[in-house]
């Protein structure tokens, strides 16, 4: 029987077993499977593309080295998410010690989604406005405290429940609720000067 694993026939238990044996192909599949997802979390917290890529790289290297310690009490995605969030928060703490946190505007390019024809969303002004708001929100996200930002990002990007976030960040469920409320409230305040009544 072949020991190889194929992306199409993805089986988590088998993947983990192969990873524990040091199978490089299994590791490649793990990277392909989770890289964009983990990058989304890292970018949401860090708001720097290159740094986020470095963090995701570190996460995978950590996984490679520590896979033998993975007991399977949770899914591998939960484990990966936990390592990513911890790496991000550690990264920020490290930088905070050296510099005051500043977030620079995101890179601008013309890539983007195209709305359905025949709707108001197709109007150039609407498109421009949407794009501008998406960028401003990410900029303003950088002004939130990191703990509130992490909760907001996990809720929005991963759709985690309060209990899941609490477990992941080792905080109380009530703290998750209050941080999430604070993050949204603060974002709305920060965006007030940029948005029209109909935007938000």
């Amino acid at each position: 029987m072949s020991n190889k694993i194929h992306k199409d026939s993805y089986d988590e238990a088998r993947l983990i077993s192969l990873l524990k044996q040091g199978d490089e192909e299994a590791f490649r599949i793990l990277v392909q499977q989770y890289q964009s997802r983990l990058f989304g979390i890292a970018y949401g917290i860090i708001l720097e593309r290159e740094e986020s890529l470095d963090i995701v790289q570190d996460v995978f290297l950590k996984v490679w080295q520590k896979i033998h310690t993975f007991r399977g009490d949770s899914s591998i995605s939960t484990w990966l998410r936990r390592i990513t969030v911890n790496q991000c928060l550690n990264w920020q703490r490290r930088w905070k010690r050296r510099f005051r946190w500043h977030h620079h505007p995101l890179e601008r390019d013309d890539a983007g989604d195209y709305p359905e024809m025949g709707t108001d969303d197709y109007l150039p002004e609407t498109l421009y406005r949407k794009k501008e708001l998406e960028e401003i929100i990410q900029q303003k996200l950088g002004e939130l405290p990191e703990d509130a930002r992490a909760v907001f990002v996990l809720r929005e990007t991963e759709g985690l429940s309060y209990d899941e976030i609490a477990k992941l960040l080792k905080i109380k469920r009530g703290t998750v609720s209050s941080r999430l409320f604070y993050a949204r409230k603060k974002l709305k305040e920060l965006l007030k000067e940029y948005v029209n009544e109909e935007d938000l």
Binding site: F39, G40, Y43, A111, D113, K130, I137
Partner: peptide, 15 residues
């Protein structure tokens, strides 16, 4: 709206 704009922006960055 906040959620929608944030997810859309992040989705584009990832893409």
């Amino acid at each position: 709206s906040l959620s929608g704009f944030f997810r859309a922006g992040l989705g584009k960055t990832v893409a």
